[in-house]
Design a protein around this nucleic acid. Structure first.
Length: 215
DNA sequence: AGCCAGGCTACCG
DNA sequence: CGGTAGCATGGC
């Protein structure tokens, strides 16, 4: 398994190159792992992680654009903003009633941290933060080596017969973390590469190209 | 015209 | 515990 997961990574990296996740200000930053460079960028990643729940990134960009206009890529400002205006701003991402509450919770939480890196457990205790969102925040906003599992990851692994359908989030996460180098840059790239590959071959059935097949 | 998108909570058995 | 309805908009 170790070899397989490493081989898949090399194959994807060769095919697509460095992805430069997470996007900041609507832009990727391929091969540059210095982001976020400040707390504003860090907070942008955090709210993006919430807004993208079961939602395409295109929609998230629209919401972030609205929030930028409102000077709300900032925890204090989000808490000051009228709730109805906040709802309107994030409408393009869907589930805007829930997500409005989630943004307020995470803004309060972020303020309490006062710059400290949160633990995974603390993040999971915030309403609206589940395992994938927590790991995305830790990996991309805080550069912590926490592997992110999403629907694509599971789809690709099951399609390639590397894991059975019943595997849950933690089992998948554990599998990656045990078998690849524990390094936040590798984790960032691997997850991003999986998403890129899935967008190309796994959005609609029949699911494409098996990663384990030889060329 | 459906189906799906970088999920989570609440509630069910 | 594991399983699932409901949440909602917009792109393709």
């Amino acid at each position: 398994m170790t070899l397989k997961l490493k081989n898949i990574y090399s194959k994807l990296y060769k095919e697509y190159g460095a992805q430069g996740w997470w996007p900041i200000n609507g832009k990727y930053h391929k091969g540059n792992y210095d982001f976020p460079k400040n707390t504003r960028e860090q907070f942008e990643i955090i709210i993006g992680a919430i807004l993208t729940q079961n939602t395409s990134w295109l929609q998230v960009e629209k919401a972030l654009k609205n929030l930028r206009k409102l000077k709300c890529i900032d925890a204090e400002q989000i808490l000051k903003l009228d709730k109805e205006i906040l709802k309107e701003a994030i409408k393009p991402t869907g589930y805007f009633n829930q997500k409005t509450e989630y943004l307020i919770r995470i803004a309060e939480f972020y303020n309490q941290l006062r710059g400290k890196t949160p633990s995974r457990k603390e993040l999971l205790a915030v309403k609206g933060i589940g395992p994938e969102t927590a790991d995305s925040i830790l990996l991309y906003a805080y550069k912590q080596p926490e592997f992110v599992i999403d629907a694509y990851t599971k789809r690709i692994l099951t399609h390639n017969g590397l894991i059975d359908e019943t595997a849950n989030y933690n089992k998948l996460k554990e599998m990656f973390e045990k078998n690849i180098e524990k390094d936040f840059k590798t984790y960032q790239e691997y997850h991003a590469l999986i998403v890129e590959h899935a967008k190309n071959h796994y959005q609609k059935k029949p699911y494409g190209e098996k990663l384990t097949a030889k060329k």
